[in-house]
Simulated scan of single mutants.
Amino acid sequence: MDAHAQVREGGEPLLTIGDFAARARLSPKALRLYDRLGLLTPAYVDESTGYRHYRPAQVEHARMVVLLRRLGMPLADIAATVRLDGEQAGRAVAAYWADVEERHAEQRTLVGYLRGRLSERGFEMYAKDFEVKTVDVPEQHVICESRHVLSEELPVWIDASTRRLEEAAESECGGMADSPFVVYHAEVTQDSDGPAEACVPVRDAAAARAWAQKAGRERGTSYRVEPARRIAYTRITKAQVSYPQILGAFEAVEAWVAREGLKVTGPCREIYFVEWDTAGPEDQVCDVAFPVGE
């Protein structure tokens, strides 16, 4: 086919990549990139020449891709958003930006924490917000779910795993005996995946053992006995569960343990004693705790 011949689709003349690039105010290089990324596919590609052609209606699509790219939206989300109708696409953009603003708020707080910490006043900035106490916890029979998980996956996994364990406790193990807790056997960050272990204390040990045998290794489920121990803890609000406040909570407990001449005898944990979804930002929801001994 002559490269200059007019190409039509359903009677509608198609635009060459040069004409389309001019209308969309994009370079041909950008259009080839968007095609390769699956964000903007040409209406027609000549098999013999490789020339790309576009429908005039795709100009708005191209401009929308540019705007979403400038917004920092991930490529997969852009591809999904531009396939939606106007109202749905608007909701998708609003939901994405709400997540961005939440993440930026956390990062803004983290920047303040880091600046203070680097100037040797970071710990003091946050330690004053946390009162540390100790309590003796009796032996507990717990059903557990363990998983290697990164920090961005952690909130969803904690919610889902504790709900599954709570349902199993009520239906299979004689009911819950105490508050659920999450044990961190290693750091959970963007780069370190734990593992973390969700635990629910139950009333019927024999039933819990039977449940664990029946459940097998599904989702890393198990039953074990949590020995009696003393824990040092500080109680935090829902707002303080966010970074970096929760880092300050862990550091405050560790510093208190060191000042008291005690030793940490087990992995740190978060003990949740309030239904998360019904709690407000200033409601106390969680104990950040370390097992301790002489």
Rank of each mutant, 00 (worst) to 15 (best):
D2L: 11
Q6A: 15
V7D: 00
V7Y: 01
E9L: 15
G11R: 05
G11P: 01
P13Y: 05
L14A: 03
I17Q: 06
G18R: 08
A22S: 11
L26N: 00
S27C: 01
P28L: 02
K29F: 06
L31E: 08
R32N: 08
L33K: 09
Y34C: 03
Y34T: 04
R36Q: 14
G38I: 02
L39D: 10
L40F: 04
P42L: 14
Y44M: 04
D46S: 14
D46M: 07
P56F: 00
Q58C: 12
H61N: 06
R63H: 00
M64K: 13
M73S: 07
P74L: 02
I78F: 10
R83L: 11
Q88K: 12
G90W: 10
G90H: 06
A92N: 03
A95S: 12
W97K: 07
D99W: 05
E106D: 08
T109Q: 12
L110H: 03
L110E: 08
G112K: 14
Y113M: 10
S119R: 01
M125N: 13
M125Q: 15
A127N: 11
T134M: 11
T134N: 06
D136F: 04
V137Y: 01
P138D: 02
P138L: 01
I143A: 07
I143Y: 08
L150V: 04
W157I: 12
A160I: 11
L165D: 04
E167I: 08
E172D: 10
M176R: 14
M176P: 14
A177N: 10
V188G: 02
S192E: 15
E197N: 13
V200N: 08
D204G: 11
A207Q: 15
R209I: 12
R209Q: 15
A215W: 06
G216H: 06
G220M: 05
E226T: 10
E226Q: 12
E226K: 15
R235P: 03
R235N: 09
R235D: 02
K238H: 08
K238G: 03
Q240M: 10
P244E: 02
L247H: 12
L247W: 02
G248S: 08
A249W: 07
V253I: 05
W256A: 13
E260R: 04
L262K: 14
P267D: 12
E270R: 09
F273A: 01
V274L: 12
D277Q: 15
A279I: 12
A279F: 04
G280T: 05
P281D: 09
E282T: 13
D283R: 07
Q284K: 07
Q284C: 07
V288E: 05
P291I: 10
V292D: 10
